[in-house]
Amino acid sequence: MNIFASLSRKPWIWSFVAAFVVWIATILFTGGTSAIGLSQAALTFAAFSILVGIGQMFVITLGPGNIDLCVPATMTLAGTIALKFMQVDNSLILPGLVVAVAIGAVVGMGNFALIKLLQIPPIIATLSMSFIVQSTAIWTNRGLRIKPPQALAKFTTETTIGIPHVALVALVLSVFAFILLQKTVYGRWIAAIGQSNRAARMAGIPVDGTRFVTYILCAVLAAFCGYLLASFSGGAALNMGSEYLLMSIAVVVIGGTAVAGGNSNVAGIWGASLFMFLVVSMLNTYGAGAGIRLIMTGLIIIAVIVAAGGRNPNQR
């Protein structure tokens, strides 16, 4: 009993329960034949949401108003330029990764520079930045679909003992993010700033430095995700990041991270990402049209947040 009681108090458990219920509902409908395929697809597509979700989570943890709307544009730009740089050459895979990460770092620095120097609210700063980044992506892409190097395309689409490689990558980064958040001074600093910026400043925490690193971290993760997604889907497209704007925010919040900041949750992002993908595939399996699918997705997001929101009235 005690295990159940303590489990039910964990904010991340609900997203996993919800994902599991949807998974069962889909499997039952197809008579159990699709279990492996569905799980693999869910892990693959969830992996991309997890990568951007982790970055967004770090930013949201910084406290009210902190959000990165530049995620989709960063993904597109990093994917486009990295693929262009690699020129379908297998030997340039690692340098290409470095290029993608560097783009992320530059965008992150730009974001923070706007927030700090112009004292613009992060939502507007990252929005303006995303316009500029998106334009750069349009300019470099020119509507061409550049193919990824073969080895990289193979890596991102294949599985090891049934687990998609991208999910493994996401797992490694999630563990890393978890350690960073829970076990390092930096993680404690983020939480402290999120709980009270003023108190954190008075306690001598380098608030600006921490925020600087956090915005870079988020942009780098988005860039890395763009790099993987472009390789996975056989080329960079200008709209490839668009659905990840709402997705990155949704998985963070459904996963049990406090929207007001100061309290983050890595495990929940996994549950929420799997859940978001599984809901769509469940509705697809049931033969719902695009309109119904959207409505149901929305209602389910609201239902989850309403159910989860009442758990802990003291937590803002």
Binding site: A250, V259, R293, I295, M296, T297, L299, I300, I302
Partner: peptide, 16 residues
């Protein structure tokens, strides 16, 4: 988050 969810709902209704 609530309005994020609603954005899917309105979008779905519009498509319908």
């Amino acid at each position: 988050v609530v309005t994020l969810g609603m954005s899917f709902v309105w979008g779905g209704l519009a498509v319908l």
